[in-house]
């Protein structure tokens, strides 16, 4: 079943007061909501708490909730509103301090910046940085839609007006490029094998 279809079923159960659907809603939208939230405010704890807050408030008002086609975008909008009011409250509270507004990025971070920052492993951070540089914009866009926003291939195809096969191929190619760079980093010291071989041959010839 497509994500979108199962989202609609879960949403319907949720509105009917099915408690399991509350947890399913969390599971289905966790990655999408967490990542979207991180773009609005780069503090996962606050984002996580806000998601909890939003879902429980929706639960309390479940009988008044609309029947929506796109559950994800409904949740994203609600989360965004919650986070913005959170930032506002926070800034009001901290106006006295110099770090005022530290939670409020001047502009939303790009996908590349975010996944590099979220990566804790320093070696991987470096490699990811150089690997992303060698991708095309289209490739990066599709990686973001697929992995960061957690959409499925059908949704991406629809959104980008291309075939599902094309979506798949572009992402495949992007990952192949990433792989080459991620595993090609020199493990041992400087001298590449070819040159080394050349030297050995050269020495042999001398004899």
């Amino acid at each position: 079943m497509l994500n979108k279809e199962s989202h609609i079923i879960t949403w319907k159960q949720f509105r009917e007061g099915n408690k399991d659907a509350l947890l399913s809603l969390y599971n289905e939208h966790y990655v999408g909501l967490m990542n979207y939230g991180s773009k609005v405010i780069f503090n996962r704890e606050i984002v996580k708490d806000s998601i909890t807050q939003v879902l429980l408030r929706l639960w309390d008002h479940r009988s008044a909730l609309p029947d929506v086609d796109n559950v994800r975008s409904y949740l994203l909008t609600t989360l965004r509103r919650e986070l913005l009011s959170e930032i506002k409250k926070e800034n009001k509270r901290h106006t006295k301090y110099t770090e005022a507004g530290q939670n409020m990025p001047a502009e939303e971070k790009s996908y590349e910046d975010l996944i590099i920052q979220l990566q804790h492993n320093n070696e991987l951070k470096q490699k990811l940085h150089s690997a992303l540089l060698s991708l095309t914009n289209r490739e990066k866009e599709l990686l973001q839609l697929k992995f960061f926003e957690d959409l499925d291939y059908e949704e991406i195809a629809e959104r980008c007006q291309i075939s599902k096969r094309t979506v798949y191929n572009i992402i495949y190619r992007a990952i192949k490029t990433l792989k080459t760079i991620l595993i090609s980093a020199p493990r041992v010291s400087g001298i590449p094998e070819k040159i080394l071989l050349g030297y050995i041959l050269f020495i042999l010839i001398q004899f």
Partner: peptide, 25 residues
């Protein structure tokens, strides 16, 4: 690679968050 691309969400963290949510809920 998958975990790098999805914003560093792994099973361990997801489970911890989900359990916390289930408790609060």
């Amino acid at each position: 690679v998958y975990i790098s691309l999805n914003g560093n969400h792994n099973a361990e963290q997801f489970n911890a968050d989900r359990i916390e949510f289930a408790k609060i809920a």
